[in-house]
Amino acid sequence: MTALSLRDVRKNFGPTEIIRGVSLDIAPGERHCIIGPNGAGKTTCFNLISGRFPISSGEILLNDQRIDTLPPHKINRLGLSRSFQITSIFHRLSVFENLRCALLWSRGYRYSFWSPLWRQKALNEAAEHLLEELNLAARRDILAGLLSYAEQRALEIGMTIAGGASVILLDEPTAGMSNTETDYAMALIRRVTQGKTLLMVEHDMKVVFDLADTITVLVYGQVIASGPPEAVRANRAVQEAYLGALEE
């Protein structure tokens, strides 16, 4: 069984093919990183998996179930959650409300307009607990839009895992962070994705080789290598296409 698999997925915008036949199998509990030069189609890949854009051909399966025809919210309900490269939170709601919103669907509240939120004890405790876990308890009632950048990223990771999804997609979670912030964010990600399947796009090679069980290298919409970090590091084609260029 695979947690997530892509089978010959293709995507074209107009006449240009951006994703040119990507196949991937990610085992449950695996920490999988996608790397590749700018414009390789990493984020597009995420957008296809999470249902943000429809695919042109191929198949995407989540826990052996086809998801490539579903809208994003249905994919999310099946247990796949994602974060965005550009922070995506509810900026005019408080930090606490952001987390509570992220918990609502998975706890079965649906579109309820009859259950007052203040009386949902378990829900509120879960949101408070998440606040603690993210180290944002002191910022509880501040509007999310007023948080610092690193705090917003932490909040988004919290919202991404809140619903208890089994497959987590993180799109460059440490982009634009200082070294200390990156270390902190990575520790947080390790902690909150314990036991979950993690698929991550990342540019920071130190982070990637530290974290990943498997690395996939994407160049011009095609997978040129995929395997354990050592194998990818030793791979000739990768060195030429990507890593070599970085070390120059």
Partner: peptide, 26 residues
């Protein structure tokens, strides 16, 4: 109504339509 899940999610879709989708709401 502003204190119910629907009311709160109305605020949420106002702030960020896409994020609301990716936490399971249509």
């Amino acid at each position: 109504l502003t204190l119910t899940p629907l009311g709160r999610m109305a605020n949420a879709t106002r702030d960020n339509y896409e994020r609301a989708q990716f936490i399971g709401y249509d």
